[in-house]
Amino acid sequence: MRILRPIEVLGTLLKWPIEELGRIILLLSSVIKELFTPPLNIKNTLKQMFEIGVSSLPVVVITAVFTGMVLALQSYTGFKRFGAETLVGSVVALSMTRELGPVLTGLIVAGKAGASMAAELGTMRVTEQIDALETLATNPVKYLIVPRFLSGITMLPSLSVIADIIGIAGGYFVSVYLLGASSAVYMKRTWNYLELEDIYNGLIKSCFFGGAIALISCYKGFYTSGGAEGVGKATTGAVVLSCMTILISDYFLSAWLFK
């Protein structure tokens, strides 16, 4: 029997994440089912879009402008060594649209909106507000989760577009005003190498991240148990799992989209 022991340990270790994944997928299937069952709660959806989009906007803007700036600064120093300074514009544009815009916005929204979704739903669970919804013959998945899911998949791409533009502007500012690059050359390099495909593949990624953040955070909040401590755990769990999901799926999505 000692030979089987490692297999037993492996099984116990894998049981929990597989169960969790299963429950998330079940939740996703009921979210999708409710999403296509009218009526849609427009008031709640708009409210959530505002929560996710507007509340994260200042942090997204600040992060994007400094990321664009530091990208320009670092790649200028590197490229100068072999006389390729004029390519800074394309590096900033490609990195922002393909990678940094979607991923950084995703991480910010996971930390801000994801945490607040998990905490809000978790509190509603432990104070029996979710039970109360059910006693009022209201489906909590439809009332609470569908609006958050919809705003996740719409607002994250919107924030990403803003991050792309602001990041490129930050790179432009550093290159042209601080490093003395020519404005015309910088813009030309940006446009020459940037394809429309770069932008919309980036946006497909952020759509996916938005859905994942909303689903994971709602899942963690919805199945909270154990009072205030449980709400705290759910919130931390939501942020950690969302960020991990973003970073890991980013690799696979990039490999698949940018062939």
Partner: peptide, 9 residues
Amino acid sequence: MLFQGAALF
């Protein structure tokens, strides 16, 4: 149903 903590939204 009236809940113990009222469970108001």
